[in-house]
Each structure stands twice: as C-alpha cells, then as structure tokens.
C-alpha cells in the first residue's frame, strides 16, 4: 500500500517560518498593523454606518457594458436616513469623485484616505465633487443639519 504524504508529515510551523523569511512577512504584518491603526483613528462612534450596497466592480453585467478605455466606477451606500451614490474616475494616479446624496440636502463631506482627509460640501441638490484623492481605502463622512452623522464603510478606490 502506498502511503500518501500529508500535511501531518510536515512541520507546518517551521515551513511557514521559512516562507515568512522569503516573503518579508515581518514588513507585511507591520503594514497590516498600520492599517488597523488607521481604521481606529478614523472612527466616529456616533455616526450611522452606510453600507456598500452596490459596487460596479463586482457587477459583471455592468462591466460587460463598459466600452474599453472607460474607467468610471459606481458605488452606492445606504443607511436608514439617506443613500449616497458615488462615481469614481481614475485620473492617472489620482481619483476624482462625484456624489449624490438622497434625499437631497446640503451637507459637509469629509473623505478619509491614506494621506489624511479631504473636505468638500454637497449643494442644495445633494451633489458634491471631490478631486485629487489618492488611490487606496476611502471612507466618506456626511454631516447634514439636524441629522445624525453618516459614515460609509471603507472601500478601496
């Protein structure tokens, strides 16, 4: 009978440690820790969370309709009190964002990102525009008069 070698015949911890050396695991885990800190630093415990309900990147129908060379991405966030639709455009290494808050209202907008944050404002129709954002994870914070603040979940753009 042939004995099939199995994971049990390897020392996974030692093999894993060797792979870590090759992969620069220490540096990568440090990056993961830095990302964890960034999540904690940008939180507003009083805000309502707007979930990412739609992402065109995960929508094969939408992707197949896109003509080649077009780079727009559509994101839709919702929470009880409002929804936020965002279109993201790639401008070389940077990103620009046009957004629409519904129901329409003036709002102060702050976008947290890898380089810090960028402020903007939505007009009376709930529209806003933000240029020159870095690629990477972003979160939108939306403050309207007399309403609970809203924060979207993090999403990489």
């Amino acid at each position: 009978m042939r004995i099939v070698p199995d994971a049990d015949s390897f020392d996974l911890d030692l093999l894993g440690a060797r792979l870590d050396e090759e992969d620069g695991a220490v540096q990568l885990l440090a990056r993961i820790d830095a990302a964890a800190e960034a999540v904690l630093d940008a939180r507003d415990p009083d805000a309502a969370v707007a979930s990412l309900e739609y992402d065109s990147v995960l929508d094969d129908d939408w992707r197949s309709r896109l003509r080649s060379g077009r780079t727009q991405r559509v994101l839709a966030f919702t929470t009880k009190s409002c929804s936020v639709d965002v279109e993201v455009e790639v401008v070389i290494e940077r990103r620009s964002m046009t957004g629409q808050i519904a129901p329409p209202a003036e709002a102060a907008i702050v976008i947290s990102h890898r380089e810090g944050s960028t402020s903007s404002a939505a007009d009376g129709q709930g529209r806003f525009l933000v240029d020159d954002l870095p690629a990477g994870p972003v979160r939108l914070s939306i403050r309207r008069d007399g309403e609970r603040p809203v924060e979207t979940t993090w999403v990489a753009i």
Binding site: Q27, L28, R31, I32, A34, A35, A36, A38, V39, L40, R43, V49, S51, G136, P137, R139, E151, T153, W154, V155, A156
Partner: peptide, 19 residues
C-alpha cells in the same frame, strides 16, 4: 502586492469595526 495588502487589511478591519 504589498500596497494592496494594506488596502485589504484596512477594508477588512474597517468592516469589522463597522459591523
């Protein structure tokens, strides 16, 4: 790649903090 590892960590941990 390394820069995407950071993005992955931030969106994953961010989702946990939110939910």
């Amino acid at each position: 790649p390394p820069e995407d590892v950071e993005d992955l960590a931030q969106t994953t941990f961010g989702a946990f903090a939110d939910y």
